[in-house]
Every structure is written in C-alpha cells, then in structure tokens.
Design a protein around this nucleic acid. Structure first.
Length: 556
RNA sequence: GUCCCAGUAGCUCAGCAGGAUAGAGCAACAGCCUUCUAAGCUGUGGGUCGGGAGUUCGAAUCUCUCCUGGGACGCCA
C-alpha cells in the first residue's frame, strides 16, 4: 500500500468511527466511505459525501449530519489541517502539507517498482489478442488491438495479476486454402503465366511477396508439378511465410506473446469432437437440413448456429468453441479476448457456448476495439483488406515510429473510434503528445546531469519539507496517485488512463520547470530537495511510459 | 428490422461504480527566451453534455424512448 492510500484509509476509518459515535448509523447500516479528490482546490485535498448518503438512514438534514460527524472526528489521528462543510453537505478535508512527505522517499526507494500494486492478488488472467489470420500483413486495425492488448497486459501485470499473452493462429480453416490458391496464382503470374487470382483470394502485397520468394528459392520448379502437390506445398509455404512476417512485425512493434496456439493442434489432439460431445450431453445440439446446429438461442443468442456444415466441414465457430474450452480447462480465473469491432456480433454465440459447456460466463470477457480512421493532410484514407490497400503496420511504424504509434493507439478508450492523424504523429512539435511527454523526461535528465556536474544533490540527504511551492505540492500529489491509476486501469481494463496520467504529469513538470529553478547554487538545501523531486518525477514518467511500451529518451 | 459502439467547446476526445462551478489537447486571441532544452510556459474567449421523459437530496454518468453517425447481422473467417 502506498502513502496516499494509507492516509485515505486512516481518514475513512476516522469518518466511519465518528459517524457511529454520533449515533447516525449502526456499523451495519453505514455505507462504505467514499473519499474523492476534489477537482477544485478550494474543496480541500479529500472530500466525502457520506452526510448525504446518511440522510435517509439518520433521518436528518445532510448538513446537520456533517456537523455531527465533524464534531466527533478525532483530528489528532490524521494530519488534518482543517475541515469544512460545504455545499449540500460535503465534508472537505484540508491536509497538512507534510502528509505528502513520504511520497518522494517512497518513490526513490521503489524506483522501477513504483506504481506496482497487488490489487490483482495473483489472479491468473489470460489475454488473447491480435490473432490475425496468417493470410497477409498486419494492418492499422490490428495494430490498435495489438497496442491495446499489450498495454493492458502490462498494466494487469503491474497491478499484481498473473498474465499470459496468447495468439490464436487460424491455420486450419478454409482461409488457408484460399491462401494457397492466391499464392499459386501470384506464383504463376510471377513466372509470366496467365493465371487468374481467385475472386475471394487475398489480393494484398504480402501474397505477391510470398510468390516472389517462391520464385527466388525454387524458380519454375513448382509450375510443372501436379496441382495437388503444388497447392499442398504452397499452403505450408504461405502459412509459414505469413506467420514469420506477422511475428516480425509484432516484435518490431514490441509485442511479444507467451503462447502461439495453433488451431491445427485442436484437430491433432482431437479436441473438437470432445467439445461437441460436451455440448451434446447438455442437449444443445440438433440436426437440421443435413447440418449440425448449436442451440445458442438457449443462452440469448439471436439465432442458432451451424457447427458442422452440409459438406461435413466445421464452421469457424466449432474449433473456436473447442479452443475456448481448452483455455478454460487450463485454469485461468479470467480469459480476456480482444476483438475488432467487426466481430462484436460473434460475442453472444461464444458466450452461449461457454455457458453450454458449463463454465461460469463471468470468466469470459471480450474487449471490442473500435475502428481506426487514418487521416493525412486533413483527409481520410480509406482502407480495405480486399483490395489490399490497407495501411500496413510495417508502413505505419516506418512512417511515424513505434513510440508515436503505440502512444496514439492507447490514448483513447477502446470503444471509441480513433482518428489517427499521421501528420500529428510524425510532427516533431509541441502539438504531438508523445514528444511532449518524452520531452519532459529528457528535460529532467538534462537537469540531473547538470546537477551532477555541479556536484549537487548527489547524496541521499534532502528535506522534502522545503518543497512548499504550489507547483511542487501539485507534482507530489500527482506522483502519489500513480499506483491508484495503475490499479484503476487494470480493474477497469482501460489502459488509456495511464496515457492520460503521464500526459498530466508531464504538464505539471513543464509548468513547474518554467516557474521554478531547480539548480540554485545559493540555496543548496532547496536544490537538493528539488533534485529529489525531479528524480521521483523521472521515475514515474519512465515507469508509466514503460507500461505503454514507449521509450523514455534522456536527450532530445 | 435486430444487436453492439459512439453522440460532451469550432475540431479530436477524457470524464460515465451518480456529487460541488463539466475538463484536456488542437484551433483562435494576448503575452513569456541576458536564467537548468521555447519540442516549453502564462492568460482570455468558447458548452441547452444529441432531444424528451423517469429514478434520486443530487444525473454528462442509471432506466425508458426517439433522432443521428459507424459497425455487425453467412452452412465466410
């Protein structure tokens, strides 16, 4: 537990005791005390609305209740400067400045660990994300899912969850056949033959590159072979090449997985019939029109779903059900899937499947990532997977860099669409939030370097009580919030809160920097205290950027 | 037609486990570099939180309804 949390806990306890002592409510009746940090400084450092909440129970006016609570408060136990009652019955607490005193020493001591919490309590969480079909390049939409999933995992990890990252490789369905056919057509075209791309094939550049690679390695060898043999070979070649590309792109994007789960392994290990059998035991299977159906409507789905097609093949859903069964059998407390918005309609049937298999549906969670719209020169760039004109992740990285791309993708809530402004992401100006934040870090590094050159603040001796300027207090309060921000982002699965936080912290740093001078030969005491503050800010920025997967440069 | 997401300042978006006078960035306007990085800072203007009803002491936040935009509704994946 960090310093601010401890102060809050003590304060909450005091308020609860005071309320009971004033006979406003019994221990059982008393609601949880909520402490908030008022936006307006004139409302103090903490505020509680307990008086309003107790109005009905105590059958008294809120302001009267607030009076009673304040009268019974033992101010000696917490470092409260003064207490005020305001508005409809808020109780505002103004703390003595020294309540911030422990923040800086705590941060400097925790260093890389600062921000970590144990709210997850070691709970096992698995996050499956990206999981793009190995039939082409990763593009913009996938990139957002990749950034979201990765940062979510970082945040969960920091908040004390036991996280695993997994990628589901669709290497068994009909899309792989399409891939083989597409590769074949491109291969023959490379050799100057008059081959036609299948209507429903993959038209992207990636397939052409694979064909070129084939020609480079095998020449015309495969043109003369039996088609069956050729297709079989191209299927594997295409699959492996695509997978390699995807892995390479993700690695460059700083996304690494613990598991790469192959759909084929479900076939090999006979897991699909097992899942079907389980469904059958629950009477959720029926035959109709020569197909096998899953009665997903029993769990609120719009319509029932086909599992085994008329032609005897599984639909996409069937191995996916087996896959989710497998995941749940691995003993995670929670499995989170990160899906694109175009797959949201798939959620009810998978939820139905989880329930039909007899698992608690609360363990299954889907995060939907809304679309990304790319803007350049004020105009929207349309993307389409079919025509192959989608903007590839690789191109995006080359253009704006990994830092800017990752940062931009986790600036917004996952369920808001995202307008990605290429010009802004590229710009080396104060308009660009990633540069703004990184600049704050670099600025601190420069100051600390100079401090060292001048022989200032090198020791462990500093007196934080000298930090009384408003901007110093603001910085310390913000620093103290970091662990709560991490917990909040993890629990609510909203990694963009970290991005917002680090931006706000950078703002306070820049503001402080312009208002106060850190290195002052004529005031060594204060200089040492400020250097300690700067070190603490640097740690918080670095750790926050680390969670987002963005570098913290020392010079810019 | 059904389902999902969104609708908050001129633009892009936070805020949505109900709390005080609704925030940030950009854009606009006015200022700040003999001082640790001006990739920075300070200030000003700007809002019927899509409309309406309800619950509540209190609603941008919860419920219902309507409108607008985007997406999804295959024996595709």
């Amino acid at each position: 537990m960090n310093v601010l949390e401890q102060t809050e806990e003590t304060l909450k306890q005091e308020i609860a005791d005071a309320a009971i002592q004033a006979n406003l409510a019994s221990k059982e009746e008393l609601p949880d005390i909520v402490l908030e940090k008022p936006k307006d400084k004139s409302h103090g450092d903490f505020a509680t609305n307990i008086a309003m909440q107790l109005a009905r129970i105590a059958k008294k006016a809120p302001r009267q209740i607030a009076d009673d609570i304040v009268a019974n408060l033992d101010k000696a136990k917490v470092s409260v400067e003064k207490v005020e009652i305001a508005g409809p019955g808020f109780i505002n607490f103004f703390m003595k400045d020294d309540f911030l005193g422990e923040i800086i020493p705590t941060i400097l001591k925790s260093d890389k660990e600062y921000g970590k919490t144990n709210i997850g309590n070691g709970e096992k969480v698995q996050v499956e994300f990206v999981s793009v079909n190995p039939t082409g390049d990763l593009h913009l939409g996938h990139a957002r899912g990749a950034a979201y999933g990765d940062v979510l995992c970082n945040v969960l990890d920091a908040a004390g969850y036991n996280v695993e990252r997994e990628y589901y490789i669709n290497d068994a369905g009909s899309q792989i056949d399409k891939l083989a056919n597409s590769v074949e057509a491109r291969y023959l075209q490379e050799l100057g033959q008059d081959a036609e791309m299948p209507e429903d094939g993959y038209h992207g550049q990636a397939i052409i590159d694979i064909a070129k690679k084939l020609v480079a390695e095998y020449g015309e060898e495969w043109a003369t072979k039996e088609q069956d043999e050729r297709i079989a070979f191209f299927k594997e070649f295409g699959l492996q090449s695509s997978l390699e590309n995807i892995k390479m792109d993700l690695k460059e994007f700083r996304v690494e997985f613990d598991n790469w789960f192959s759909e084929r392994s479900l076939y090999k290990e006979n897991k699909i019939p097992g899942a079907l059998k389980k469904l059958e035991e629950g009477n959720y299977i029926f035959e109709q029109d020569d197909a096998t159906w899953f009665k997903s409507t029993a769990f609120g789905d719009d319509k029932d779903r086909v599992l085994v097609k008329k032609d005897g093949n599984y639909t996409y859903l069937t191995p996916d059900i087996a896959y989710h069964k497998d995941k749940l059998d691995r003993g995670y407390d929670q499995i989170i899937n990160v899906w694109g918005a175009d797959h949201h309609g798939y959620v009810p049937r998978m939820r139905a499947a989880i329930q039909a298999l007899g698992y608690p549906v609360e363990k299954f969670d889907v995060k939907i990532i809304q679309m990304v719209n790319l803007f350049e020169g004020g105009e929207k760039i349309r993307m389409s997977k079919r025509t192959g004109k989608a903007v590839a992740l690789r191109d995006l990285i080359e253009d704006v860099g990994v830092d800017a791309a990752r940062y931009f993708f986790v600036t917004r809530s996952n369920d808001s669409q995202l307008d990605f402004d290429m010009d802004l992401a590229r710009s080396q100006s104060n308009d660009n939030p990633i540069f703004y934040v990184q600049y704050a870090h670099a600025r601190i590094c420069t100051m600390l370097e100079q401090a060292q050159n001048k022989g200032l603040g090198s020791g462990e001796v500093y007196d934080v009580s000298l930090l009384t300027a408003e901007k110093e207090l603001d910085l310390m309060k913000k620093l103290g919030e970091f662990p709560q921000v991490v917990s909040d982002a993890a629990v609510k699965q909203t990694p963009h809160k970290v991005t917002q936080y680090v931006f706000d912290l950078a703002t306070l740093l820049h503001s402080f920097y312009n208002a106060e001078k850190v290195l002052d030969q004529d005031n060594i005491e204060r200089t040492n205290a400020r250097i300690a503050l700067m070190k603490a800010v640097r740690i918080a920025i670095r750790n926050a950027l680390g969670l987002i997967g963005v570098t913290a440069p020392e010079k810019m």
